[in-house]
Design a protein around this nucleic acid. Structure first.
Lengths: 151, 151
DNA sequence: CTCACTGCAAACTATTTGCATCGTA
DNA sequence: TACGATGCAAATAGTTTGCAGTGAG
C-alpha cells in the first residue's frame, strides 16, 4: 500500500516516531476513509491487528494527524467526530436517517468569490454539509414520514 | 417585540404550553441570534429575568424548537452547539481564533443543481461553514502564526 | 383539575489528561 | 539510552434523563 507508506513518511517528517499502533491507525484510516470513520470505528479496526491498542492512543494519533494537516476532523452534527484523509475538495452528504456519510465532488469557487468581495473574513477551510436522506433509506422504507415533515 | 409574539404563537400552535421560562428563552434567542448563542449563553441571558431557570429547561425548550423547525441547531466544530432562529439561507463564517460566528448571505443554487444531477441523495438542509480568521483577530495581532501554517 | 413543565441532581457520551511503563530512533 | 509513545483509569465538558413538585390551559 503505497499510499500508506507516503503517509508514514509525512508523519515521520514531522518528527513523530512510528510505532506499530500508529501504523495500524494509519492503515485503518486509509482503508475506511470512504466511510468517514469515527475514532471508535478506527479503534475497532485497529484492535483486530493490535488487540491492546487503547482508544486514547487512537485519539492522540488522530489529533497529531490533524495538526500536521494530513487528516481532516469532521463535525457533521452527529455528536461524534469523523475523520478522513485530506483529499480533493468536496461536500459531505449526511443521511439524517442512517447517519451514513458520502462525498460529493464540488468546487467552492462561487463561495470563494463571495468571500473575496465580502471583506472582513479570511477563509482557511470550507465545510459544506448537506443533510438529507440517502437512497437506501428511502427505498427500503426506513424513512416513515418522508414528505410530511411533522415533528 | 412582534417577532417574539409570532414565535410564541407558532410554539403554542404545536401544542406546547407557554411558560415564563419558555418565553424568556424565546426572547433571549431572538435578541442574541446574530451571535449564534450556545445553550449556556441563552441560559445566562434568561437568568437575568428568571433567576431560577435551569439549564435543563433551556436544553429541553431548544430541543422542542428545533423539532418544530423554528430554530436551527448548529454544530460548528467547536464542541458546543449553537442556536439560531430559522431565517433566510446563509453560510456561517467561524473564526478559528476567537470562535465568533458571522452570517454570510449566499444562495446554494449551484449545490442544489449538483445534487439534482447526482441521483441518490435527497437533500433536506444545507450547512455551509467557512473556517478562517475574522478581521478583528488579524488586525489586533491576536493571530500569531498567520500565513506560516506550521503545526 | 390534569398533565405537561420545572428544577435538581445524577447519568451519559465523547474526548482529554496524568502517570508509570515501554520501545523507537 | 533518552525521551516520546503507550495503556489504563480518572477527569472533563456538553447534553440528557428521572423524579417529585408546580402551574398553564
Amino acid at each position: 500500500m503505497a499510499e500508506c507508506e507516503e503517509l508514514v513518511l509525512k508523519f515521520k517528517r514531522h518528527g513523530y516516531k512510528m510505532t506499530p499502533q500508529r501504523r495500524a491507525i494509519l492503515e485503518a484510516l486509509i482503508l475506511s476513509t470512504p466511510e468517514h470513520p469515527t475514532a471508535e470505528q478506527i479503534h475497532e479496526a485497529v484492535l483486530q491487528r493490535m488487540p491492546d491498542t487503547s482508544l486514547a492512543t487512537v485519539y492522540n494519533t488522530l489529533r497529531e494527524l490533524v495538526a500536521v494537516h494530513e487528516v481532516h476532523e469532521l463535525d457533521l452534527g452527529q455528536g461524534v467526530r469523523r475523520y478522513e484523509i485530506v483529499q480533493h475538495e468536496h461536500a459531505h452528504l449526511v443521511c439524517i436517517n442512517c447517519q451514513c456519510v458520502r462525498d460529493l465532488s464540488a468546487d467552492f469557487s462561487k463561495l470563494r468569490d463571495l468571500l473575496r468581495q465580502h471583506n472582513g473574513f479570511h477563509p482557511v477551510r470550507y465545510d459544506v454539509i448537506v443533510y438529507g436522506y440517502c437512497d437506501e433509506c428511502l427505498e427500503s422504507g426506513r424513512v416513515e414520514a418522508w414528505g410530511a415533515g411533522r415533528g
